[in-house]
Amino acid sequence: MKIVQVAGYLGSGKTTLIIALSKELAATGRKTAILVNDVGAVPVDGKVMEEYGLMVKDIGGGCICCQVAGNMLKTLESLAKGPAPDHVIIEPTGIAVPESIRQAVMLNAEKTGAVLGPTIVLFDTTRAEKLLTYETLKRLVATQIKDADIVALSKVDLSTDEDVSQAEQAIRSMNMDAEIVRLSVTSGEGVRLLAERVQEMLVRK
């Protein structure tokens, strides 16, 4: 059971990407489950994904990276014993720190049978200025970006080339090693490439 984490700030397009990515992974014949941690008292994202026919487990009650990591591990354990998917895509809240989730999965790998795969972090190019200006948001976004194996510059169809290039430069200064992919789920740009990269990394890891 390999774990793919799709992280990124609130509203960056995680749920939309996961729906698209799941279709690509399903086409390879692999069974995929989604583990969703929504911000808010009432879950929305999991319900939306279920509407698209995906196998979804909701984790509520707080942020997965610092408050309800135990619930995530229990859910991974029950997935391993139950439907035993080949892949689990974790969608943390938009304020989660990917490294905390990665640590929790790694430290409990024996119990859950989960193997860490790639971490994708989305960056919303339409809100680059705001996300990189407010110090609090910038700190959170930078923390997320530095944990990424792949950074997906999302909503590029809604941004100018100049804005996307500037966002790319800013991201590169935060993470020298991550692959950067330009993404628009609406137009389809980057979705197939991202799915291919994820599959390559799943084989390697």
């Binding site: 609130l10 911000v39 808010g40 707080g62 942020c63 610092c66 304020i95 609090t136 923390t143």
Partner: peptide
């Protein structure tokens, strides 16, 4: 839902659900 927890990177972000 208290999303702040003790994590300083969550400062200033609040939510309400109905």
């Amino acid at each position: 839902i208290n999303i702040g927890g003790s994590n300083p990177v969550h400062d200033g972000i609040n939510s309400y659900g109905a």
